[in-house]
């Protein structure tokens, strides 16, 4: 049951990810990206990390992608036209993609040998566990990230200010 669900949502995630690149209209690409985020959330849920799944949907699918869609709608961006496709990409693209995937598979095999996936076996995915980990073990990276985000916000305001004056 878990494996079937995993396969269904993994396939949906991959198809949506390919669709992000293939679609010519920005809105369609953005919606496909929402599909990727949502199916990733389901995969987290299957593994037993329910807080992470909810956060994935709320933050990525619900907040960031809504902003993307909002900006695309506001600028009223039209469909892009395909032109100037190089023949090199057609010949080399396929083999290179296969090589990259095999390389990735080999690295995963080398880094985590003999580890099998247990669906729903992960304990420690609750809100309490995530909160405790963030504020004890990973306190420094967490705080540094928050300062980084603050700097980014300030930068955005400064840049927008310059345009206004």
């Amino acid at each position: 049951m878990d494996v079937i669900l995993f396969l269904i949502f993994a396939i949906i995630a991959v198809v949506c990810a390919i669709n992000v690149v293939v679609q010519t209209h920005p809105i369609s690409s953005a919606i496909s990206l929402v599909g990727v985020m949502a199916s990733l959330a389901v995969l987290y849920l299957l593994l037993g990390a329910e807080f992470l799944a909810a956060a994935q949907v709320i933050v990525y699918a619900g907040a960031i992608m809504v902003l993307f869609v909002f900006v695309i709608m506001l600028l009223n961006a039209g469909a892009e036209t395909k032109k100037g496709q190089s023949s090199m990409a057609l010949f080399l693209g396929g083999p290179l993609l296969v090589a990259l995937l095999m390389l990735l598979a080999w690295f995963v095999q080398q880094l985590f040998p003999g580890i099998s996936v247990h669906f729903g076996g992960f304990r420690g995915g609750s809100a309490q566990d995530v909160g405790r980990a963030l504020f004890t073990t990973y306190l420094l990276p967490f705080e540094v990230t928050s300062i980084l985000i603050l700097i980014a916000i300030l930068g955005a305001i400064v840049l927008a200010r310059k345009e206004m004056d």
Binding site: I27, I31, V34, A38, E50, F51, A54, A55, V57, I58, A61, G62, A63, V66, V69, F70, M73, S126, A127
Partner: peptide, 21 residues
Amino acid sequence: LNIGVLFVLAVSSMGVYGIAL
């Protein structure tokens, strides 16, 4: 669900797409 509150938030934040699209 042990994340019931977050589930409601997540689902309602996805509802924006219906209206925006």
